[in-house]
Nucleic acid binder design. Sequence first.
DNA 1: CTGTTAGCGCTTTCAG
DNA 2: CTGAAAGCGCTAACAG
Lengths: 353, 353
Amino acid sequence: MSPRRVTLADVAKAAGVSRTTASLVLSGRGRELRISQDVEQRVLRAADELEYRPNIVSVGLRTGTSRTIGFVSDTVATSRLAGDMIKGALEAARDRGFMLFIGETEGDAELERLLLQTMHDRQVDGLILASMFTRAIKVPKAITAAPAVLLNALPKQPTPLPAVLPDEVEAGRRAARVLLEAGHRDGIHLIGAGPGLRDVPPESVAAVERLVGIREALGEAGVKVAGARTCPDWQPEYGFAATRDLLHTIRPRALICFNDRIAMGAYQALDDAGLKVPGDVSVVSFDDHPIASWIRPTLTTVALPHYELGRTAVDVLFAEIGREHADAERVGEVHRVPMPLRSRESIAPPPAD
Amino acid sequence: MSPRRVTLADVAKAAGVSRTTASLVLSGRGRELRISQDVEQRVLRAADELEYRPNIVSVGLRTGTSRTIGFVSDTVATSRLAGDMIKGALEAARDRGFMLFIGETEGDAELERLLLQTMHDRQVDGLILASMFTRAIKVPKAITAAPAVLLNALPKQPTPLPAVLPDEVEAGRRAARVLLEAGHRDGIHLIGAGPGLRDVPPESVAAVERLVGIREALGEAGVKVAGARTCPDWQPEYGFAATRDLLHTIRPRALICFNDRIAMGAYQALDDAGLKVPGDVSVVSFDDHPIASWIRPTLTTVALPHYELGRTAVDVLFAEIGREHADAERVGEVHRVPMPLRSRESIAPPPAD
DNA sequence: CTGTTAGCGCTTTCAG
DNA sequence: CTGAAAGCGCTAACAG
């Protein structure tokens, strides 16, 4: 099909030197080994003219390295939000000349084992184990074969693996403060979780952490949550139902919704009840899902930094790869990535009574 | 770090045979070469006990194959919709024991060249060149090195590359027919493109194809489009503006929005004007973006079959790889993937006058 | 039926 | 300063 690739041997021949010399020059170690200028130039020129490209597979076989990292997730590639995570990882990897293998497990442990196996067979230099939404995962044993980092996930059992996560607690504080700064002190209701730290959807790490932050910031200001509704799942319909129920008995001044989809449902319930955002009720939320800027009024929300999470995971992974010998002692530190506030139109001072 | 991998030589030694024999047995060609049952069993058992896994890199070097395909897109990994495309490709590839390299070009031709180069260096067996939204792309010359298929994209110049695309024309017909079947014959307006085939956003293949289908189905029924507004970009704000302007002068009976984001804007404008969907105005749209089932009333829409597109691309690619020698003569056929209708709540018979 | 031999393309001692 | 030789793990002729 193609006219056979140019190999190192071709370059060496064209330059009239041995493969060794050519290899040395091309891997940039010509200088330190004091190879003559003349030879160096000849090799470089030959490589250039022949358009030589090293065969990475071959290098991989020889060096046991593949300049590739495996990105394994439950189903991250699919969610738009999380797609940015891949993008961040992709770019960070590319900056270092690495490629990414993507794999999805669909939450199936057996599939996960197979996938890790396969990646190992392909000699990946490291692994990123990602979860679509922040939660505690069972770290597969198979993973110990290569350096690895957890992305958007916490280990269920203690492991030496580092983890990269959004700073949800600070995000909770931030959401609460936005309301505080607008002058809200009363009638602040939570939609999605709370009021207690146990009133959260199953497995949701984000829920409890956001809740902690919210309560902390409110508490410091001496403000109490007026009420809270838990949603079994953070989907618009539950946000709608929870808000509608709330409105049957109470007229809130502000809503902290636990994510944008819930906020969307809340908007609908508020609208049905003839309440205006933000004139009657202020709304703040989390995630910065694309709809946050589509719904009207546009939604103020604390963004999940997907892109940064992806980049950070790769950075942490490279630090891990760089580490000579993994001290079994070391316990995986967790890296928190800040969640930035996106100020939009859904917040106003409380209506004067 | 790990205790050195088990190699074929280890298995051979343990089974008391040569590497060749072990290789033959393990690649399943033992039978046809009539290797003795005894030997076969010994090898199999040894491999099993030692947990032997072939080193794919090595096989790759030897056979020039990598059981890997490259998925290069402008920015497909990022868009939630298109994430499903990757998912489909991922699964189809996995079914055949292949992995996927993902790469994004950000529409930068130089980056694209580099990426293709890199994938080529890594001996990918085939390439999928994907676009986030359907359009004509300039096929990079570098791509001829390996079998390739265009996904969600048409070649600008004629090439022998096959292309996989959603069947937009049929989708257009389908959208129009839904309205027709509900009894609509008058007051049907287009939001996003039209009425002429030239009234479309730049580069949008989908726009003209959908338009063709719509006009065809309507034409067959002897129905004329009452009016149309083009949007410079298919975002909610433009859908909102276009619909609001339309409502200044006209009271439509039905809207065909060119995608769900536009429809979302249209909903807002309709709501502002005090018009009910679908009681006063029916709405049909395209894409089946997640919001289509979130907004109320839920939106009837003709879905982009992202997952299927991804799968199909891989299937077509494998057919391509299987083909012995690419006849330069062959012109790339285009495969159209059906776009299914998602019937929801936004359509009703026209109000009786 | 099975083993010997020879590489795939590259890096890396080890001698000049 | 440069080259010869070995070998990463595997497969494929080619002999026996």
